[in-house]
Computed example of a mutant assay.
Amino acid sequence: MYYDVVLENDGDTLLATCPDLPEVASVGDDEGEALLNVVEAIELAIQVRIAEREPVPEPSRHRKGRHPVRVPAQAAVKALLHNEMLKQNMRKSDLARAMSIHMPQVDRILNPKHSTKLETLELAFEKLGKHLEVRAG
Rank of each mutant, 00 (worst) to 15 (best):
E31A: 13
G32K: 03
E33Y: 02
A34M: 08
L35T: 01
L35Q: 03
L36C: 11
N37M: 07
V39D: 06
A41T: 02
I42N: 02
E43L: 01
A45V: 01
A45S: 14
A45L: 04
Q47V: 00
V48A: 12
R49P: 06
I50K: 04
E52D: 14
R53E: 10
E54S: 11
P55W: 11
P55T: 13
P55S: 11
V56L: 08
P57Q: 11
P57W: 03
P57M: 11
S60K: 14
R61E: 12
R63F: 08
R63N: 12
R63P: 04
G65S: 09
R66D: 04
H67E: 14
V69F: 06
V69M: 06
V69W: 05
R70P: 09
V71P: 05
Q74W: 03
Q74M: 13
A75C: 07
K78M: 05
L81T: 07
H82Y: 07
N83W: 01
M85Y: 05
L86C: 02
L86N: 00
L86D: 03
K87S: 13
S93Q: 14
D94S: 10
D94N: 12
D94Q: 11
L95Y: 00
P104G: 10
Q105Y: 11
V106K: 07
R108S: 11
L110H: 00
P112G: 02
S115R: 15
T116F: 06
K127T: 00
